[in-house]
């Protein structure tokens, strides 16, 4: 039932909103793997990011993609938590009080092993610009444990102008999505994150805005 609601919600509401109202332009759509596990890693500046990234995938994959979200933010209110699970199928992970019992890595590995794909924002929160934000190493940990999983770097442009942090009304700015080639990250944790960040910065160079 939830799966059907999610598909209807995206097809009837989110897709027309993004295509006709906001006007999202996508380049490199062919870089998203059709089969096999992957993690989409993007810069994060707006709540719009998750919608845009989920919308990139074909309908069949919609129920297999799980945005990784901060538990302290999305679970602060039961209604928000219920809606974000219903419509966006989030995986809440702990950012602050991490213990052996709620290890975020375990949750992510379990999801990937179930055949689900992840959306992750390595900046860990909504940042104004990509350069200043430090990348957190969650993706490197996952890649360490499951080397067969590839990481798709994505640069999202103009999202924070359309829907900035702390704003509830959307203003239609033309947004761009630049999708890079999938990466199989190698080396140490720091090397992995540096490769990923460099790839996203390279994609930023192609962005018009």
């Amino acid at each position: 039932m939830r799966k059907i609601i999610r598909i209807i919600f995206f097809q009837l509401f989110i897709r027309p909103l993004l295509v006709f109202f906001v006007g999202v332009r996508v380049s490199g759509r062919e870089n998203i793997p059709l089969n096999g596990s992957f993690i989409i890693a993007a810069n994060h500046s707006s709540h719009l990011d998750t919608l845009v990234l989920m919308n990139l995938l074909p309908v069949k994959q919609l129920n297999r993609i799980r945005p990784v979200a901060a538990a302290d933010y999305f679970m602060r209110n039961p209604i928000i938590y219920f809606l974000s699970c219903l419509f966006f199928n989030i995986i809440p992970i702990e950012r602050i009080k991490i213990s052996r019992g709620n290890n975020p890595l375990e949750v992510l590995l379990a999801a990937l092993n179930r055949g689900e794909n992840l959306i992750m924002f390595p900046e860990g929160t909504r940042c104004k610009d990509l350069e200043s934000g430090e990348f957190h190493s969650g993706i490197a940990h996952v890649a360490e444990q499951l080397p067969q999983v590839c990481v798709v770097p994505v640069y999202l442009a103009n999202m924070n102008r359309a829907l900035p942090k702390g704003e509830i009304f959307l203003v239609p700015f033309i947004c761009e999505v630049h999708i890079g080639h999938p990466l199989w990250l190698k080396g140490t944790k720091e090397e992995k994150m540096k490769v990923l960040k460099d790839e996203i910065l390279k994609l930023k160079g192609n962005a018009k805005w």
Binding site: P164, E167, F169, V171, I174, W209
Partner: peptide
């Protein structure tokens, strides 16, 4: 939409831009 995308806008202009639309 094309116009406000290419010009520089400030974060503070958000609501005024909404009214323009």
């Amino acid at each position: 939409k094309e116009y406000i995308t290419i010009i520089d806008t400030r974060r503070a202009d958000h609501r005024a831009l909404l009214w323009a639309f």
